[in-house]
Design a protein around this nucleic acid. Sequence first.
DNA 1: TTGTATGCGTTATCAC
DNA 2: GTGATAACGCATACAA
Lengths: 346, 346
Amino acid sequence: MSDPATRNRSRATADMVASRANVSRVAVSRAFNPHASIKPEKRDLILRVAQELNYTPDMAARSMVTGRSHLVGVIVPDVCSPWESQEIDALTTALQAEGFATLLFKTRTDLSMDETLLTYMKGFNPDSVIAFTENVRPQTLSRVLDRAVPIYVAYPHGEDETGEAPGPLFDRLNVMQRDGIEQAIALMQGYGAKRFAFLAGATHSLATAERERMMHNIMAERGLEPPLRIQGDYTYDTAYRETLNLFRVGEGADAIFSANDVGAFGVIDALRHDLGLRVPQDVKVVGFDDILQSHWKSYNLTTVKIDLTERVQALVRLILRRLKSPSSPSLTETVSTRLVVRGTVG
Amino acid sequence: MSDPATRNRSRATADMVASRANVSRVAVSRAFNPHASIKPEKRDLILRVAQELNYTPDMAARSMVTGRSHLVGVIVPDVCSPWESQEIDALTTALQAEGFATLLFKTRTDLSMDETLLTYMKGFNPDSVIAFTENVRPQTLSRVLDRAVPIYVAYPHGEDETGEAPGPLFDRLNVMQRDGIEQAIALMQGYGAKRFAFLAGATHSLATAERERMMHNIMAERGLEPPLRIQGDYTYDTAYRETLNLFRVGEGADAIFSANDVGAFGVIDALRHDLGLRVPQDVKVVGFDDILQSHWKSYNLTTVKIDLTERVQALVRLILRRLKSPSSPSLTETVSTRLVVRGTVG
DNA sequence: TTGTATGCGTTATCAC
DNA sequence: GTGATAACGCATACAA
């Protein structure tokens, strides 16, 4: 019977498999360890008996002796956000392929990294931790999670990979944003944009700060006036509202660069459905991320793409390398960005 | 130093805290267990020393003796899908508040539930499992995960809560879809729709099958012709392509009911941007789920809402109740649906 | 290749 | 209220 009330709630143990297969407890352990030396026929027998008994090695017990939990902690402020959900999806797939399970934690959406959360997380002994929350300092992460390897997704100021203030103390993934941003500005400029605006993301986000800084630099190099600034928070609703503001009480713009794609959608909808303006004829719009929704016909957004596959592979590479050699100096991976041209500039 | 190479990689243990605070190891354990009896001052001392040493109880060791891992497995076919990502987000938040961590697993996107995955998952000893993959039989789930409590999200055929074939053997969440679907059809009919079409979701999805069956019943009751059928897979691209098909080589329709919101977006974009038809004047469209994107101005979708908060609370209630009394008969929770009227019918 | 003995970090049991 | 001891399930060092 499989009724919850009568179901057998005791797990099969290695000992049970051992006695049923007439082998020692250790043999069972070896049968499940690919690197252990055991006679093939014996392993087959044990594996067969194990399957009969529905036995699986207990990861908790295993982790106590090996020191590896096969758990990777992932900290996100908001799973709903398309970009993050796509990254979680790809990451989970890649980690699963390497034998790791994803341990998901949510921080408060105001992005304030909670030390309580880190402490709580530490109890699960993750082999590694990936923090999407951009306002947590790597120092904070590694102070609490002493056994795990925090991986810090950084957005370096220039093209110099090691130019960050914290120095090369942490494993990190650098996202080179300059190329994509320069291409975006060049395209808008090439189509005659004169008055630029930047729709910023959440207040404390490092990514949006860096995108803004870089936009200023590039525009200065090209002899363009500094862009107007719209304070957003990466959400559609705020982007929509602030765009109305910009055109109703502000001076408007003829080119808007949003710190993320979802914000660009809000901008486009406000322009088209409320302000009666045409995109791209009256106002050009460029986003950032290239989420799955960006090719939807209602938006067909021109956007700066961060290659998700490349990015996730780099993250997994960092994790595996660090686990293989825990004492090697800090590792760095780099991913690039580039403009994907669709229909919102032209 | 916090350099990866020099960082202290050994965790503080209860013994270390004990000797530093001049108490026994057991006292440390009690200090971290709210229900244990220990002198308040002693607990405070231990907690202070623990914080100094950056000590956190090891969940793996704890789970070995208590039998509780404080892990809840969540199986999804696709984290990117807006509905699923919203549910994962809400679920993780709710579980975290109750002291559980979310263990995320992905099945292949063809929805075939892999027994290998379940076996792998079992190794982590989750206290409970929530399966979003709709084609996995609860029997399969509980056969492999003998210690966990699978929670099955069911879509009962009628309004009879216990009418499902497997009988009341599993904890389950019933989603009552009839109300919302009936309201949707009534609204479209009220605005003069004559030729209905149903855009189905993935082939083996129970949810879409049930939605379709119910739509047939309700339309028959109302003296309407059975709807045309479009085979989709819950994605935007397929919905877009199949809508073009329906109108170019097929006979078209003046009301389309999509099994999910994302599919409805594809329908709307195909109608407006490729077929030159107006929504809602020429074709009425209704979706299912009420995801965050449905209120975006480009779609402004009329849709059948499943209350996410209600649904997640029900799931967490099921988990907690089952954990509290493992031997009680199977539990059932019910959530309802209702139509949210926006701009795509009228 | 195989088996024996030991330890991982914690909580439950039972004395006091 | 407190402390000693025995488990939990597994992998490793070591001896055979």
